[in-house]
Simulated assay, not measured.
Amino acid sequence: MSSPIPAAGTCRVVLCRGCCCGTTDKHPDTDHRQQVDQLSAAAGVDLAVTGCLGNCERSNTIVVLPSPAGRAAGGRVTWLGRILDATLTQAVVDWIAAGGPGVADPPERLVPHVQPPGRRIAATAPADAR
């Protein structure tokens, strides 16, 4: 069964909550519940929480998929790593509010957090999907 396509202007956001992301053992100073709440309450965000994406060395990982308009404009899936505080999570929310991948460039604050896909995804995805 496939997931429904997000509404126009809505970006699907995949939040890793696997073996490292979202754990107080690895990130004791991060409010992981607040991060989920912040993303799920944001306009334009279709949040999916998932298990490990194989990106443990760069946890907490957030993956932003372009909206339909972003895809039409050539937007690509964007992986973000080390999103560990409310200000970085808000930068993700603000980017999505501005249109997200394909519509708006990531805020300067997020640029150092853009990264390649996690190991599990990279190993199975066709080269043109990365």
Rank of each mutant, 00 (worst) to 15 (best):
L84F: 07
W79A: 08
P68K: 08
R71D: 13
V63C: 09
I83P: 03
A91G: 03
V77K: 13
A69W: 08
A72V: 03
N60G: 06
P66K: 03
L80Q: 02
L88I: 09
Q90L: 07
G74Q: 13
L65F: 14
R71F: 12
A104M: 00
S59C: 13
E57W: 11
A69E: 15
R82P: 04
N60D: 13
G70Q: 07
I96L: 01
C56P: 00
L80G: 03
A69I: 02
R82A: 14
G54K: 13
S67P: 11
S67V: 05
L80I: 02
I62N: 02
P66R: 05
R76T: 15
T78R: 03
G54T: 05
I83E: 05
I62T: 12
A104F: 00
P68A: 10
V63N: 10
T78D: 03
L80P: 09
D85P: 13
E57Y: 09
D94T: 04
N60S: 12
G99P: 09
A91L: 02
I83K: 03
L84C: 11
L65G: 06
T61W: 03
A72E: 12
P101H: 01
T61Y: 05
L84T: 14
G74A: 14
G70D: 06
A69T: 06
A73V: 07
Q90A: 13
T61H: 08
A86V: 10
P68M: 08
V103E: 07
P66F: 07
P101E: 00
D105Q: 07
V64S: 08
S59Q: 09
D85T: 12
T87D: 15
N55H: 15
A72I: 07
V92N: 00
L84P: 06
N60A: 11
A72D: 13
A69Q: 15
R71M: 12
T89G: 06
D94I: 00
